[in-house]
Design a protein around this nucleic acid. Sequence first.
DNA 1: GGGCCGTACTG
DNA 2: CAGTACG
DNA 3: GCCC
Length: 770
Amino acid sequence: MTNNRDLDKSITAKIAFFKGAIILDVEDDETGFPDARLIDAERALVDPPVKPKRPKATKRESSDSDRLRDRQNEFEIVTTKMRKAAREDFPKIVGIKRVSSAPDMAPKKVQKVDKGKQPASRAPKKTTPPKLQHSSTLPTPPKMEWYKEVGDVPRALGRSKIPKPANIKLRPESQQYMKNLIVYFYQNNDYDEGRRLRIHKVIELGGAWVKEWRDDVTHVIVDERINYTELLKHLEERYGVKQIPAHIIVTNWDWYMGRVFDLKCLPLEPHGPLYRIRGAPDPQVSTTNLHSSSPQLESQDSLQLKPSKGKAAAREERSPSRIEDSFRQEAPKSRKRTISPDRQPSRSPRPDSRSGLSSGHKYSDALSAAIGQAKAFEHLPLDFEEDEASSRPSTSEGTGTDTESEEERPRKIRKTSPMQFSKFDQSKFQCMTKNDGTSTSGNPNQRTIEVLQEMGKYYDMMQDSWRTVAYRKAVTTLKKQTEWITTKEQAIRLPCIGERLAAKIEEIAMTNGLRRLESTKTDSLDENLRLFLGIYGVGLTQAHKWIQQGYRTLDDLKEKAHLTKNQNIGIEHYDDFATRISRIEVEVHGQIVRKALQKIDPLFEVTIMGSYRRGAKTCGDIDCVITIPKGSIDYIRNTVVDELVPQLMKEDFLKVGLATTSKDNGSKWHGASALPGSSVWRRIDLLLVPWNEMGAALIYFTGNDLFNRSVRLLASKKGMRLNQRGLFKDVMRGPNRAKITEGTLVESRSEKRIFEILGVPWRPPHDRQI
DNA sequence: GGGCCGTACTG
DNA sequence: CAGTACG
DNA sequence: GCCC
């Protein structure tokens, strides 16, 4: 058991320095750290086999775009005040332009129903008994469906760019539990796939959807994150509605519709606390408001499709879940956000396949089908899409890269040998040009970059990984510009910038801001999502689920959620893991590992990788590559797992393992470490690399992620495959690059050689910050 | 209208 | 297997 | 988001 004392002298010196540094240098390690003390660590950094230059890039280089997803940055960004700027309250950019006209049938305009119809068709309280006669087929009357007459037609499901109005097939009447109901959603648009699905569902069940508020609305279904105050504000601002008539049911999808599917009829006590959204008044108490005509109050009630009382009552307590209850109690406090006018985003269509909802489903087992479907989209993130634009002018610029036959069609299985590249424009790969994140400060497009980065972070958080990547690429492009890009025409010629980004760039240049971004700022759901995504072991799926269940704080999770071991650790050390680590501390961690390992076998080599190697001022974690000349991977693994880790655990340097290799082909150890005397845990990754794979490993572990993806994509275009083990050729790929054969190893030992073979100009780690 | 990197570890 | 992680 |  060694302790501080046993540590190498240089280490203790560094620790001392580090402790000092921590005080004066916490948030700004900016101008690095001096010097001498580091030399030794820097030296040690020289990469063994391949010897890429050490990152003496310590000097300035304000770029810290080392890792966009960096949580801390995200937090900072969000918190950061947006520069004020032309923010004239923009009018609904969202609404309107969509579905307006259905090709096949003129969608009767809403107005017609407007006033007079209120007790509308509801009169014939037909409420067919839920006794399903199972005549699953006698749907849609020949004439125009009710929902089209009374309400609006949402656009069809699916992701087609050109929105088509949906033609929704209603369920048989026996299953139309929402017959003649008029539903207003908030957010009230059908851009978001999840919400669109819900709108379709309402219609299938016999209801109608209205895009604009009307007096005869019977139900308001709000997104999970919306509270009553926000809803009211929206209604007042947009429609001058100051109070929501008491007979109108204000609820959210899961709590209410879950019941509907469950009961196969409308709930008995639609105003009960079970369905009330956050901040909603208790009707019992605040009977203050019910001014408007409420003939519907009764009708609403009468509409109840005889729910089997006993059963309904029985389920009442447990069904919609206690979570909401408990949540509701503490809701008020955790909700600090006040405003946020109508449209706010929250994002994004899952790239998944979940389309054919309205299409050809037969609800043979209506209930289970309904439940299944309700479940299917209960976790769908809701959001709105921004306006779409357009046409694609396909600025086919100069380089007549007429990609063709071979490369062009991924259809057929093909095999390409590395040397016979067909022509695709290799120069278009971002890995081909140097990207030191520098230029950020002096760049004339600085402001634009900032704004786009924020948008990118927003999309990242909101699950839209492809948009995130697109924004990051665009930012990279902008960083390389020496001119201030102010117009669409200028912008659209640049790589990775298309119409929509070009328009945004122009807007930023003109107004110094981006309206679209403003609207994201006030979204409180974002904060929760951010919070949860910051937990190690929690991704979008889990975060959305928790939010859906009403959890809002880490304490909520600790008390109520089922957590995996890693998630527990992630929560326990949330702040630790979210804190950036100074280079100096990173070095100290690395040195401790190195010393311990070399005590076991002096031939071991430890190299610090990741953003550290790219010269970042601060790092999110510590990546150590462990290798040894003429040592098998098994030897490395056994040594690390059986000796190094236990030893460092014993010394209390390593605190816990998070993802630890076990299998015989394992290669990584993820865990947490802390300096002697420090209680701050750091994320540390040990990467076990056979000596002859160091070249490929260096590329991988140096990153950054986009750089890696770019190189890998390039490799695949050349019929090769690059991973952390090596570069392979003669990779056979199926439809769309699906790997069929592993290919044969071309090079793995030399980082430089791999670059050469791929035709990628060598660049030091510092310049790989795409 | 589909692709957008390739892998390792967890439960 | 999906989810999360790593660069 | 962009690009083919």
